[in-house]
C-alpha cells in the first residue's frame, strides 16, 4: 500500500514535474513553483506558464538509510542503497524537493551547482512514473 495520487492528478502535473513549468502571477509577477491555485503573494489566481531552466544549487539534503524509504521507493533502496534527497534552490528563486542522483553523498555540499534530469521514479498501477531528479552540474 503506497501513498497515492490519482493518475489524472499525476498527469495534470506533467508540465511541472518534467518540464519544470512554474506559474508567473499575472498580477504581481511572482514566480510560483510548484504551482498552486492561488498566488501566495497577492492571492490572485491567474498565471502564465514560465518554464524554469533546471539549474540550481543544493539548499539542504539528507541521506535516507536502508529500509527507510517510502514504500514506492523500497525496491530502489533495497537495490541501490541509501537514498539522497534534497531541497534544491532553483536559479529563478523557487525551491523544490527532489532526489539527488549520480552523486556520492560524501561529496554533497550546501551551495553546490545542480541541474535537472528526467529519471524513473517508481511504478504504480502499471504506469511508470517519471520525474525530475538533480545531478551535480559538472557532469556531462
Amino acid at each position: 500500500m503506497s501513498a497515492y495520487i490519482s493518475l489524472p492528478m499525476f498527469g495534470a502535473g506533467t508540465g511541472q514535474r518534467l518540464r519544470l513549468e512554474a506559474g508567473r502571477c499575472r498580477s504581481c509577477a511572482a514566480l510560483v513553483y510548484p504551482q498552486r491555485p492561488q498566488c501566495p503573494g497577492c492571492g490572485d489566481d491567474a498565471f502564465d506558464t514560465a518554464p524554469l531552466s533546471g539549474t540550481g544549487t543544493l539548499y539542504t539534503y539528507t541521506v535516507i538509510a536502508g529500509g527507510g524509504a517510502p514504500a514506492e521507493f523500497d525496491d530502489q533502496q533495497t537495490m541501490t542503497g541509501p537514498l539522497t534527497v534534497g531541497v534544491v534552490a532553483l536559479t529563478e528563486g523557487p525551491h523544490v524537493i527532489a532526489q539527488i542522483a549520480d552523486a556520492d553523498p560524501e561529496t554533497l555540499e550546501i551551495g553546490m551547482p545542480l541541474r535537472a534530469v528526467v529519471r524513473r521514479l517508481f511504478d504504480q498501477e502499471g504506469v511508470v512514473r517519471y520525474g525530475t531528479k538533480f545531478v551535480p552540474a559538472a557532469d556531462a
Binding site: M1, S2, A3, Y4, I5, M9, G13, P34, T60, Y61, T62, I64, G68, A69, P70, A71, E72, F73, L83, V85, G86, V87, V96, I97, A98, Q99, L121, F122, R129, G131
Partner: peptide
Amino acid sequence: RSWLGVSGDVEWERLAGTNFPGIYAMM
C-alpha cells in the same frame, strides 16, 4: 510506512522520494 509518510505534501515531497525523517533531517 505509508501512514508515516503522508503528512507532508504527498505529491511533491513524498512522491519525490523523501520520507518523514528525511524532512526533519533536511531542516
